[in-house]
Design a protein around this nucleic acid. Structure first.
Length: 242
DNA sequence: AAAAAGCGCAACCGCCACGCG
DNA sequence: CCGCGTGGCGGTTGCGCTTTT
């Protein structure tokens, strides 16, 4: 199946979005809802590719997006989830209400990956050009990935995630992770976000897969909010389950 | 003070899987 | 069953701002 061209590039705007374009997009989506990205630009009067509109909406314009610094707790959660899921940013983002996959990906690439590398390799890098640095980072990353191959339990290729995914799709963490509670509502303080969120993995997982998983409910009931060991417990349970 | 290098982030690119005819 | 259109994902790039030399 040949790759369908995203859109005709001719005559379409590219690069940074203007305030006017943003307004048009927001107004259209507020009136008609998300979806139909292909036809949306035309309908909204935008000279943009549908893909570009979708990205702009999801990563920047959506009202529930939380902007600002990643908190230490979010930071920690990202690291842990990444160690489990690999670069499945959309899944990780689902556990961080208000954060987008792009934001998390950027944050990882600019902050966390370095930290992880530093943790695994004590020798510091000298200042160098960005390209050279990237090349060395790639090497380092390759090394780390080799080491992490044991640690990373599951790192499938990019795949579409739907709330209705079931475990039968070869691997699927999708059903495990794609929580229904990820909209950002209900978990106000960023510090507590995942504290509320994570236990839903288990019940979702059990529900999605129809597996006998009696502990799931007990787990979500039994974990007091604010328990400092919660994350560790979850992490362990998660790994056991795998 | 100027130039070079680094950093952060929005946006783009290309691939893949799903749904439908 | 097959092929196409579309949406969604992760990887990568480009650019403007900041920091360092």
């Amino acid at each position: 199946m040949g790759r369908a061209p995203c859109c005709s590039k001719v005559g379409l705007n590219r690069g940074p979005w203007t305030a006017r374009e943003d307004t048009l997009l927001i107004n259209y989506i507020q009136a008609h809802g998300e979806g139909h990205w292909r036809s949306l630009p035309k309908m909204a009067g935008l000279l943009r590719c549908g893909k570009s509109c979708r990205l702009r909406w999801i990563n920047y314009l959506r009202p529930d997006i939380k902007r600002g610094n990643i908190t230490p707790d979010e930071d920690d959660l990202i690291i842990r989830l990444h160690s489990l899921l690999g670069n499945r940013w959309s899944l990780i983002a689902k556990r961080l209400p208000g954060r987008t996959d792009n934001e998390i990906k950027n944050y990882w690439n600019s902050h966390l990956s370095k930290r992880v590398l530093n943790n695994s390799q004590t020798n510091s890098t000298t200042r160098s050009s960005r390209k050279a640095k990237k090349a060395t980072e790639k090497k380092q990353k390759a090394n780390v990935e080799e080491k992490e191959e044991i640690k990373v339990l599951h790192q499938p290729k990019a795949s579409r995630v739907s709330p209705f995914s079931v475990i039968s799709r070869s691997s699927s963490f999708d059903s495990l992770i794609s929580g229904s509670s990820s909209s950002g509502e209900g978990s106000k303080g960023t510090n507590d976000a995942y504290v509320f969120d994570i236990p839903s993995y288990w019940s979702d997982f059990a529900a999605d897969t129809n597996l006998e998983f009696p502990d799931a409910e007990a787990f979500s009931d039994a974990t007091p909010v604010g328990d400092s060991n919660l994350l560790d417990d979850i992490f362990e349970e998660y790994q056991k389950l795998l």
